[in-house]
């Protein structure tokens, strides 16, 4: 018995080492399945909760063009949630179960969405920084070992890079605008910079799940590696905006060929994860409210579908009798 389990385990790892995709029907270690369910559902929840801070501004967008861009963007995020819930479902968990885990607080979502969107410039900063950080996290996931997850991420990544360009373009417009618009732009960058660095997760030496995830090729780069890539990218792009990142320690390091950056406030990160961020309660409440307010709608749709099916089968029986 143990012999077979070990064999399966070895074959599984071999396939991963050969860069073969694991598909839902394939044998997989229970821990691999659970890790993926946790990660994919957490990712799906982040897309859905992520609709809320930006959704705030749909009704206040300052031009019809911006409104259309924002509405389409938030809708894309809903689509990402949908692909990801579907990918997680192939692992044997239902979407309703995942929602329940979210609503009960058992499942987490990206902490970044617990910060408030206070001005229009936040729409630009989120697109540029938050979608930008998401892309760096997600591009390697297009090659992740679990097939359905990898395929979902290919679609998601295409749209995310579009979001990032739109976000940057929104800020660029502000940066070339009036003094008050430039202030709005800088203020948004100030508020979103540090939280977006935290999106890459804890420092490598404090990241408990990383080692196994690397071995299984669910993860391909460490948190700190990705964070560094992000800093390098943004530190260059911000020059085009004529804005500054709110970090006095940010400097180009000729030796490492990377930007050095200041210390992240991990206490804040911990607090936000534990539910003490500025908007944790609102975000979760909004989702729970949408869900409970929809109870009667979903119930009615189910009952109607059953009635329809019954009517159809009765009609068939009837016409079968007629022709007998």
């Amino acid at each position: 018995m143990d012999q077979t389990a070990n064999q399966l385990q070895d074959q599984f790892q071999q396939r991963i080492d050969l860069e073969q995709k694991i598909e839902p029907r394939d044998w997989m270690p229970e821990k691999y399945r659970q890790t993926l369910i946790r990660q994919i559902s957490q990712h799906a929840h982040s897309e859905i909760i992520g609709m809320l801070p930006e959704g705030n501004w749909i009704t206040r967008a300052p031009s019809l063009k911006r409104k259309a861009i924002l509405l389409a963007k938030v809708q894309d995020e809903a689509g990402h949630g949908l692909y990801l819930y579907s990918a997680a479902e192939t692992l044997g968990i239902s979407r309703d179960e995942m929602y329940e885990q979210l609503h009960s607080g058992k499942a987490k979502y990206s902490s970044i969405f617990n910060y408030p969107t206070l001005s229009w410039a936040d729409m630009g900063a989120i697109g540029w920084l938050v979608d930008g950080a998401a892309i760096l996290n997600q591009v390697p996931l297009c090659r992740t070992s679990f097939g359905p997850y990898a395929r979902a991420m290919v679609r998601v990544c295409k749209e995310e890079s579009f979001h990032q360009r739109q976000g940057f373009e929104c800020l660029l417009q502000l940066s070339r605008g009036s003094e008050v618009q430039r202030q709005m732009c800088q203020d948004a960058i100030n508020r979103w910079w540090w939280p977006s660095l935290m999106m890459f997760g804890p420092k490598d030496d404090e990241s408990p799940n990383s080692k196994l995830s690397m071995q299984w090729k669910i993860k391909r780069f460490s948190n700190d590696e990705l964070r560094q890539k992000f800093v390098d990218m943004i530190a260059e792009q911000i020059k085009l905006l004529n804005m500054v990142l709110p970090d006095p320690d940010l400097t180009w390091n000729e030796q490492t060929k990377h930007y050095d950056y200041g210390a992240i406030n991990w206490e804040e990160f911990k607090q936000v994860i534990q539910g003490n961020g500025p908007c944790n309660k609102e975000r979760l409440e909004a989702r729970k409210k949408a869900w409970t307010n929809g109870d009667w709608v979903r119930e009615a749709a189910t009952v109607h579908a059953a009635k329809q099916a019954k009517r159809k089968s009765e009609a068939q029986t009837f016409s079968a009798k007629e022709t007998q």
Partner: peptide, 29 residues
């Protein structure tokens, strides 16, 4: 219709209604 975005009773229907809001916005423009 756009006020429903992110608050719909079913994810697929949230997307559908947002689509409609986008169409209507396009017509208005």
């Amino acid at each position: 219709n756009s006020q429903w975005c992110g608050h719909g009773p079913i994810l697929e229907q949230d997307i559908a209604l947002t689509n409609i809001a986008l169409d209507q916005l396009g017509q208005a423009r």
